[in-house]
């Protein structure tokens, strides 16, 4: 029995040490008189150059506008285990945060249980379109298909091999919207091009994403895109083989400056500002928000380091404008 205890103790000691380490990541600033307090719970790292970072950057942007003394931010990231996330959400709510952002569609079920217990706290949940009919829950989502469509149009124009590869995680939510938009964009621009969509079944398996990109290359792709945090593996392969890459969720130019054509970047601050002012005014939820190209929540950032042919750049900009003013429409599957 003694041996067993040593093992248990060790495991606990290490786990505790890690919890302590993890805790230090939460960037709680000095409390001023009555700062607005926001907490974010997200499934991957807050600097993943993808989904989690997009929200983190938005909140930081608002904090920069309002000043650290008036706007407090706390982060719990890497909570890919939903139970851990639920515990963190409940914690922040009971600590009296003004707005708790559950940044992951998988957290919906937990939030539905937690939100009614804290009627004084506002929750935001995304990406999703459903507030569960609760008046202290906001839902937010990105029309990522819009950016996807623009990328698809440009890829369709640029491809020589008429074969385009997509490396996706699991066919749900934001990823599905983006990929569907992309496929429609390619089809609209270049009906001869075929798009090979490969959902690898994981948001985190970098090695598999890398091999999926290899498979795309073997199938003849000269343009690639992909979404979720494991795509760093695919971008590496694209870079190695000179395949052009279209990014989303964050500006991915730094990962492969030579081959990234453009990235769709989310600016959640557009809708966060509205949510925050609602909360300040006493309205704690009950509405759904969507970012898109039109409201400035989605921005296509071109890579200056890549010499995009002028006609394609023009085509891209025209597509963006067309979506914004409603002259370009499409039907998602």
């Amino acid at each position: 029995m003694k041996k067993f205890h040593i093992g248990i103790l060790l495991a606990f000691a290490i786990a505790l040490a890690l919890v302590a380490c993890g805790g230090s990541g939460g960037a709680a600033t000095e409390a001023a008189a009555q700062p607005f307090r926001v907490a974010i719970v997200s499934p991957s790292a807050s600097n993943d150059l993808a989904f989690s970072q997009s929200m983190f950057d938005a909140v930081k942007a608002i904090q920069a506008e309002e000043g650290e003394a008036n706007f407090e931010v706390a982060i719990t990231d890497n909570t890919f285990v939903v139970e851990d996330a639920a515990a963190a959400i409940r914690d922040y709510a009971s600590q009296g945060y003004d707005l708790v952002i559950a940044h992951g569609s998988q957290y919906g079920g937990s939030l539905q249980e937690i939100a009614p217990d804290f009627p004084e706290t506002a929750f935001a949940w995304g990406t999703a379109g459903d507030t569960f009919g609760l008046d202290n829950v906001y839902a937010y989502e990105a029309a990522s298909d819009e950016g996807g469509y623009v990328m698809g149009v440009m890829a369709g124009a640029l491809t020589q091999s008429n074969t385009i590869g997509v490396v996706g995680p699991i066919e749900v939510g934001d990823a599905k919207l983006y990929v569907d938009g992309f496929v429609l964009g390619v089809a609209a621009q270049n009906p001869d091009a075929s798009v090979n969509v490969n959902y690898i079944g994981s948001f985190s398996d970098v090695a598999l994403a890398s091999e999926a990109a290899q498979a795309q290359q073997a199938a003849g792709a000269d343009m690639m895109t992909g979404t979720a945090q494991m795509v760093v593996g695919a971008i590496g392969v694209a870079n190695e083989n000179g395949i052009l890459w279209f990014g989303t969720q964050a500006n991915q130019t730094s990962l492969a400056p030579d081959i990234v054509v453009a990235s769709q970047v989310y600016h959640w601050e557009v809708i966060l500002r509205e949510i925050i002012s609602n909360v300040r005014a006493g309205k704690l939820g009950g509405e759904s928000y969507k970012i898109g190209l039109a409201n400035g929540g989605e921005v296509i950032e071109f890579n200056d380091g890549y010499a995009l042919p002028a006609d394609v750049l023009t085509l891209g900009n025209e597509t963006i404008d067309g979506i914004k003013n409603g002259t370009i429409t499409y039907t998602l599957p």
Partner: peptide, 8 residues
């Protein structure tokens, strides 16, 4: 220390 291997 002969700790239980699975746990360690």
């Amino acid at each position: 220390l002969k700790a239980e291997q699975g746990i360690s």
